Computed example of a mutant assay.
Amino acid sequence: MRKITLTPALLLLTIVCSLSSMAQSGIDTLLPVRGLCIAAPQKSGLEEFTTFITKELAPRQVNTLILRVDYNYEYESHPELRNSVALSKADIKKLVAACRASKIRLIPQVNLLGHQSWATTLESLLRVYPQFDETPHVKMPEKYVWPNPDGLYCKSYCPLHPEVHKIVFDLVDEICDVFESDAYHAGMDEVFYIGDDKCPRCSGRDKAELFANEVRKIRDHLAAKKRELWIWGDRLIDGKTTGIGMWEGSFNNTHRAIDLIPKDVFICDWHYERPDKTPVIFAGKGLRVATCPWRTPSHALVQLNDMVSYRKQSTPEMKANFQGMIQTVWSPAQSFLDEFYGRKKNETAGTNTQAACFRALFDAIKEVK
């Protein structure tokens, strides 16, 4: 028998045809969540971004937009945490109006627990309130390299500090109110610093319980105002057993928290280098999950095909847990729009770009409807 080699182009065509065939056969392949996660625009790019919502997202039937705000907002509850240039309340209301007109669910994100620093820079929370630092003995380097002797990727706040939640929940409530949102994305990905041996509060404690308790505390706070908690899923995957590794899975035993967190937490399951089939792990635990690609169109289409198959082949109970797809973008919003509209081109990336992945994913989703 002659061996057939699938080129990337042929693979994409095969997947799209497969999805189209499913749709034509009458199989319910609709995806409850068809989303985009991207940094909130800067003030200077606000008008173009709102146009992008109405002219590009709405026609593609994107129904969920997660905007990573962090400190890019003029907080009134804690103005000391604002970025030097930040969006105003009036700016946010323009985004809210554009999403409402386009029937898009708008969800803000401010990173909690982890990602309290980046490279050589502390983010606002630990810069202003250094007492919240889980690892104050780890000093920020003048020049950042990975790996490093301190194991520093990003700083975390101490989840057991008695004053930290008063501050972060003020931010959560304010950003959810201005976004008029019924959900909040807390990030909580790539948490390497948790339960540190030198932390006077966390030392010796079970890292899975620490992580799960923080998830529950945030979830309960949101639930009191009838809001959902969304988080990234990597800390709930056993990086060793699965072979996925320390970035897309946990090597510090937080993965056991998957059995300890509330079942109404929504999981955003990101995998960028391989189309790993981990949504079944979350769905099997009774958690709703969406798959999140990044910059490789062929991976995104395999992941879409998998998600459609999961929904097709599952019991009604399990099908409800397989929620859909969320394209992720990790450059500034303006950089993505420059790439999307062809104003700038990454010559070294070839076809594997965020914009190409976005277009391929939503073109394929359109075929299954």
Rank of each mutant, 00 (worst) to 15 (best):
L87S: 12
S117N: 06
R82N: 15
V16P: 06
W146M: 02
P275N: 11
P41D: 01
R359L: 00
I107Q: 01
D70E: 15
I194E: 02
T5K: 01
A355I: 06
L106M: 15
M318F: 08
S309M: 14
L12K: 07
Q42L: 13
W270D: 04
E190L: 10
L67M: 14
G233E: 14
L337K: 14
I15E: 05
G204I: 09
S77Y: 08
H255C: 10
Y341K: 11
R295E: 01
W294M: 00
F251W: 13
G114M: 03
T64I: 15
F282V: 13
S21A: 05
A58Q: 14
P8Y: 15
Q323M: 09
G350W: 08
L10Q: 11
L106Q: 01
E228I: 14
L67Y: 07
A212C: 06
I38H: 03
P141N: 10
T29G: 15
S88M: 08
G35R: 01
F49R: 13
Q116A: 05
S102R: 07
T351L: 08
T64C: 14
L301V: 07
Y193D: 02
E47I: 06
S44M: 11
L152C: 04
Y144P: 01
E74I: 01
K263D: 15
P79T: 12
C176V: 09
F251G: 15
D259C: 06
Y341P: 04
K139D: 08
E80Y: 11
L210C: 09
P8N: 15
C154T: 14
Q303P: 13
F336R: 01
G187R: 12
L12T: 05
A101R: 10
H165G: 01
P136D: 09
E317F: 15
P262F: 04
V16L: 06
K55E: 04
R235Y: 13
S44V: 12
